[in-house]
Design a binder for these strands. Structure first.
Lengths: 336, 336
DNA sequence: CTGAAAGCGCTAACAC
DNA sequence: GTGTTAGCGCTTTCAG
């Protein structure tokens, strides 16, 4: 397990270690023969550069930190695949950490990554990241940060977001066109920009179609299956009148569906349901869930490209990339 | 974004940088006042140690590599949470990489991690890791490796496994007790030890209960939903006689269920289904899937503890930890 | 074209 | 107690 160093090769060949370095890095000032001799020896001795030394020297870790709230749903793993796709090919490693939807852990993740000298940070915030002062601090010190998906308006960095407003509007219109008239929106924290925009898109669609749109129709819930269940139960208890639900996320929609099914309320006959951001669960549930599909892989690629750009060009002009998606019609929203 | 170093503090205080080092590391030979002065200054200047330097010096990265086949199902993310739980508290970072069930990517992951000088590797093999020579090579060089879940008999390292044999037996017996008589096993590659043991457990249970057990009952499929679907379709085409399925994993079981439902074959009335290693999808499908539940978090903790032990004690006596689980009865296997 | 030497930030012998 | 020095593995001047 002893690591062979550049010096070992030099000693073996009775030349200077700096010459070996040059040979390996294929710099100009080197005779072909020497170079080949060195390369052969290096191969032979199983040499590979000690990354720590290189990193220390260049004051760069070639590591990018990635912080996500969770990776139990398919969404973040898919984004990470996209990030990897770009970063690995450019010689960067990624350190993945998850905050478990806890702002305290999130901050400690960020701190750990920063202290480990990652060259940049790609982050999707927890649902309750009210306080972004720590991140803001880093960002002000010119530390490269790219936010994606769950971004904060209070933090000016490059961002990759989805056009939530337009697609939420589109999803709501789909329900309207199917003939649903009293549509509820299961919403989540307004601190997360995407939730705010999905809600706005919903309201906008109703208004455009001159449908009633009052406060009770916005049902506070959250991003998880549990949140969806609870909200649905409350709505049923309240005897509110409704015939469709547009949920802020798929898990929320699934939770709602599970409760509706328990109460023998037929989907889509009596209540139509539309989710957002297709999760794998939505393939399995019956009826299959209509949902907006986001380009997760591409989102990861975009975030990775932005961070590379910030790191390698040192220019900091925050860019916001807005991606589009597509709409996947399932059975949960289509009356026969 | 300039990193303040130990020397900067030393200069500021007009003392030697080694003194600063001592103060920060709280070694004996240091006067209290000096120490406090240094600590205060360090705080003031926003000092934190450059991990690269420490790592270079100590020839240790405090990074542990984690390679998993995928993290789209809940299983591996949950294990990783357990790994993090132990490792973060001991000052280690984890580098997560995923092989996407591809042995080529897997080997390149391992290589990347090794070249980045991780202090050890925690790995769950891909379904087709026939060739473990690269890993064996590393292991022989005393590089700490811990396998978990999908382990190879050809590779002698510490391992954390589940008692697949016993629990597969138990799951099969459950079906037998429910009155099912012609039970199929949807199996996967025998190269993965856990698949082999689940199959053996299945066969054993049938024999113990004197039920027929011939080759056709072992249906070659795989570990994914797709594999389950395909296998189910083949079985239906073949007009084989059967009344229950014990699938090697939950996704496999789910795939089978989806096809059964398409064919309007009632579960559990006409066909009972049992899976293995509860995935979140099994909560959502109807009827809910009976399944063996593995202690994922504990599995991660165990693997982490083993790797720490190998790294910090330098003793290499491969240990095999076998964990137990529990059985979650759903509706897919219980006739009314 | 190649060797010698400095230095990245830190720790740890060894002096004083 | 504290300062001096060497060295971890590497890259990069600067001589020659």
């Amino acid at each position: 397990m002893k690591h062979v160093s550049i010096k070992d090769i030099a000693k073996e060949l009775s030349i200077a270690h700096s010459t070996v370095s040059r040979a390996l890095n294929d710099k100009y000032d080197i005779k072909k023969e020497t170079r080949e001799k060195v390369l052969k020896k290096a191969e032979e001795m199983g040499y590979y550069p000690n990354p720590m030394a290189k990193k220390l020297k260049e004051n760069k870790s070639f590591n990018i930190g990635v912080v996500v709230p969770e990776f139990r749903n398919a969404f973040f793993p898919d984004v990470i695949l996209g990030i990897q796709d770009v970063l690995l090919s450019k010689g960067y490693q990624i350190l993945i950490m998850q905050s478990n939807e806890d702002p305290i852990i999130e901050e400690s993740n960020i701190r750990t990554l920063h202290e480990n000298m990652v060259d940049g940070l790609i982050i999707s915030l927890t649902a309750d990241s009210h306080n972004v002062s720590f991140l803001k601090n880093l960002s002000n010190k010119n530390f490269p940060i790219v936010q994606f998906n769950r971004v904060s308006d209070k933090l000016e960095t490059s961002k990759v977001v989805f056009d939530d407003y337009t697609w939420a509007s589109f999803a709501t219109e789909h329900l309207i066109k199917q003939g649903y008239k009293k549509i509820l929106h299961f919403a989540a924290s307004q601190d997360i920009a995407l939730c705010k925009y999905r809600e706005k898109g919903f309201i906008n669609a109703l208004k455009r179609h001159k449908l009633p749109c009052n406060k009770e129709q916005i049902v506070p819930s959250g991003l998880t299956i549990e949140d969806g269940k609870k909200a649905m139960e409350k709505v049923l208890e309240s005897n509110m009148d409704f015939d469709a639900i547009f949920a802020v996320t798929d898990p929320t929609a699934l939770g709602a569906m599970m409760v509706l099914k328990q109460h023998k309320i037929e989907i889509p006959e009596r209540v139509g349901v539309v989710g957002f951001s297709e999760s794998r669960l939505s393939q399995v549930i019956e009826p299959s869930l209509t949902s907006v599909k986001q380009p997760t892989f591409e989102m990861g690629q975009a975030a990775a490209n932005l961070i590379i750009q910030e790191i390698e060009t040192e220019v900091k002009v925050p860019q916001v990339m807005t991606l589009g998606g597509n709409f996947k019609v399932g059975k949960s929203s289509v009356r026969l």
